[in-house]
Write a protein that binds this DNA or RNA. Structure first.
Lengths: 144, 144
DNA sequence: TATTGTTATACTCTATAACTATA
DNA sequence: TATAGTTATAGAGTATAACAATA
């Protein structure tokens, strides 16, 4: 038996629980007209990559194509994304941000952003740096 | 104007999105008989604190008492928590882990834990340390 | 035959509202 | 009058299943 128990096994549970809690906080702090995290994520991907298909977006956001389809339909109805047929493959449909969509990314998640910003501002600089680094690592985790 | 734009404003959005994604991954990797994150969190609190009321659990887990009531009802039906009337206040009801509940904490979130463990094992030691520190910080964020 | 996207339906998690019992 | 918990209902977010069109 190893005397120092591997902290990773405990840490993964802690991390899961902490993430679940923070997500609930973010949801409750948001006001009703804000974009939700799935919508924000989808818009962010489109801003990074330009024109993308439903299937690609679904894969990259770790959800089913039908679910991504529903998200895109909602965003399209609000004028935040636009569609275009694929030039060579008649089955596929390409989506991209509209100007309104780019603006919405900045303006329609303010309560969530402010709450998190205020909460993080209370941390000392090193703790802030840890969280900033962790954000990138968590993204890599989700993508793996 | 400051030449180095404050990275915190961008980082909070990145953190939100990363957390949303990781949560979806954890959900899809789990098998159907596993405890969900709210159930795991509730059991973890009861293991830490011992006997607690619905209202206290709701507050500490950042959800409404009715929602926590539903979670506790489910856990009770599975024999993972037990209830007991409050000794002096007839309105309140105290909950605690059963032995089965303590066992379930360890055995009924294995797929989620293994997936995350495997994903984190691919990171280098410093990245792992960052994530472990971040877990505690994220918890503090959620509590604030 | 496999893949893209759509439509219809159902499930999970959490919230809101109305109520009862106790303080 | 305020608080703890329950019951009933509704909403958000995502999944599964069945389908049509295209490859």
């Amino acid at each position: 038996m190893n005397k120092t128990a591997p902290p990773l096994e405990i840490a993964v549970t802690e991390l899961s629980l902490a993430i679940g809690q923070l997500l609930r906080r973010l949801r409750t702090e948001a006001n009703p007209s804000e974009l939700n995290l799935s919508q924000m994520g989808t818009l962010a991907r489109l801003e990074q990559h330009g024109w993308m298909t439903t299937a690609d977006l679904a894969r990259i956001e770790a959800m089913k194509p039908q679910s991504m389809g529903a998200i895109l339909a909602g965003l399209e109805q609000e004028g935040l994304v636009q569609r275009q047929p694929h030039p060579t493959d008649g089955r596929q449909i390409l989506f991209a941000l509209t100007d309104e969509g780019a603006e919405a990314r900045r303006k329609r998640s303010i309560a969530k952003r402010d709450w998190l910003l205020t909460a993080m501002a209370k941390f000392d600089p090193e703790e802030q740096r840890t969280l900033i680094s962790a954000a990138a690592l968590i993204k890599r985790l989700a993508d793996s």
